[in-house]
């Protein structure tokens, strides 16, 4: 006869409580994390892996489902096919060049405006709202306003300055208009972030540096910038990612520009390649992956460049050690 295993009341209560705790934790986890997890699977993980599969597949004209696994053949084509080199890679290059110009502008301008607002001049709240306002309008509406204002024959700007410039017809001016659109409609977000960042910079540091005789420029350089560094890094990162994926602005403003090849961004080109049947899907997916990797690489470089240097801490530690030893 086997010995009967008995459980003390304490053990039973402990186990029961443990189970209850686990159930509560799992319930909380499911409640708070579940919706995000489902969305993550549906809208990120699934498309990403499906995109990878698509980029390694060929397609027929009558199905959006991959027909055959072709390995890295589509990637090879993107790098070697003359049409792809001419179209896709030139679009990537245009996008990178534009991002290199527009990202600094989309940091410097809102930062300058935020600093002015931070001085809290009379009516600064109205100015703050006005600066952010273009950002809350839909891209299409803002674009149409720009199209009207800069219209070749009936535009307010050409009439005001008595000039005759086809702003959206020539490649150079067309890109200028896209830049203007990006700045006008896009700086609001960065501006608000910088405003919040500047609010949190320790005011005593300004006073101390002022007493030490630091010039306004040096105060900006050694107090303001370090104080808003987290916001600055985030804004650079999001702006860079956003402008590397530029599409809507060019689509709205430049659909009628005759030299489409020179105003097409990478995402615009990818979108355009969906023309006709589904045969292009494999190449399009490969281009998407390549563009994603390029953006990731550029972002990595930017993150490394703006990373917190360890050297500074080392010096501080050395100073503290030295102070203690005195």
């Amino acid at each position: 006869m086997k010995p009967v295993r008995t459980t003390t009341l304490r053990e039973y209560a402990f186990k029961r409580e443990k189970l209850n705790n686990r159930a509560r934790s799992a319930g909380s986890l499911a409640f708070f994390f579940g919706p995000y997890f489902i969305c993550f699977i549906m809208f990120f993980a699934f498309p990403l892996v499906l995109g990878l599969i698509m980029s390694m597949s060929s397609f027929t004209s009558n199905s959006v489902y991959p027909a055959e696994f072709v390995g890295f053949s589509n990637f090879k084509t993107v790098f070697t096919n003359p049409v792809m080199i001419k179209d896709f890679w030139s679009s990537v290059w245009y996008t990178i060049r534009f991002a290199l110009i527009i990202v600094p502008l989309c940091i410097i301008i809102p930062l300058a405006l935020a600093m002015l607002i931070n001085l809290k001049p009379p009516g600064y709240k109205i100015f703050r709202a006005c600066i952010y306002l273009p950002g809350i309008f839909p891209l299409t509406a803002t674009g149409l306003i720009l199209l009207r204002m800069f219209s070749y024959h009936n535009g307010f700007i050409n009439a005001l300055f008595d000039i005759s410039v086809d702003w959206f017809g020539q490649t150079g001016t067309a890109w200028f208009m896209v830049g203007l659109f990006c700045i006008w409609g896009g700086i609001g977000g960065n501006f608000i972030i910088f405003c919040a960042g500047l609010e949190n910079v320790d005011k005593s540091l300004y006073e101390a540096s002022g007493i030490d005789g630091a010039s306004p420029w040096k105060r900006f350089l050694y107090v303001t910038l370090p104080g808003i560094k987290p916001q600055l890094v985030m804004c650079i990162f999001t702006s860079l990612c956003g402008y590397m994926n530029l599409y809507g602005q060019n689509y709205i403003l430049l659909s009628n520009t005759p030299d489409q090849d020179s105003v097409m961004t990478a995402v615009f080109r990818i979108q355009n390649m969906l023309l006709g049947s589904s045969r292009s899907y494999g190449y399009v997916a490969a281009m998407g992956i390549i563009l994603g990797l390029i953006i990731a690489a550029i972002s990595a470089v930017q993150m490394i460049a703006t990373k917190e240097r360890q050297g500074g801490n080392k010096r501080v530690s050395a100073f503290v050690d030295w102070k203690k030893s005195q």
Binding site: F46, V49, I53, S61, N62, S63, V64, Y65, A67, F69
Partner: peptide, 18 residues
Amino acid sequence: PAFLSGCFGGGGNDNGGG
């Protein structure tokens, strides 16, 4: 399972090569 069921012709319209 989603990929296995969804990819490589599953659910596609095969009616003789278009």
